[in-house]
């Protein structure tokens, strides 16, 4: 197990969270989510090397890719629908439902 890959995955995770929280555009937020997922994929494949006789880590990674694709598809379609009403994809400007 090389710690470098572990650091890399944590870095990816942190970057992903940062992107999700700070970027203005919903599509970029979506990219941030993908970054977090790629951190998870990296982890799964990396840790699988400890157990060469099994491949559940790789299996997991494959399924995460599938999940990421599905999420991206649904997300893009929702963003398009929002854009039709608001003419923007900036979450900060889409706040008609709130406590006030």
């Amino acid at each position: 197990m090389s710690p470098v890959l572990l650091y890399l995955s944590f870095l990816l995770f942190a970057l992903g969270v940062l992107v999700v929280l700070t970027k203005r555009d919903a599509i970029v937020v979506l990219l941030g989510i993908e970054l977090i997922l790629s951190a998870a994929i990296l982890n799964a494949i990396h840790f699988n090397q400890q157990f060469p006789d099994r491949m559940d880590g790789q299996l997991f990674a494959l399924f995460i890719i599938v999940i990421a694709v599905c999420e991206a598809v649904v997300g893009m379609s929702i963003i398009i629908r929002v854009y039709r009403y608001y003419h923007t994809a900036v979450p900060d400007q889409i706040n008609e439902l709130n406590e006030r």
Partner: peptide
């Protein structure tokens, strides 16, 4: 549409974080 976007962004972020959790638990 707005609620859908919010729900989606919130939900998929939390899910992504959870998936990261699973990968750590695997280790």
């Amino acid at each position: 549409a707005e609620a859908g976007l919010k729900y989606f962004l919130f939900g998929s972020t939390v899910t992504a974080v959870m998936i990261f959790g699973w990968s750590l638990l695997y280790s």
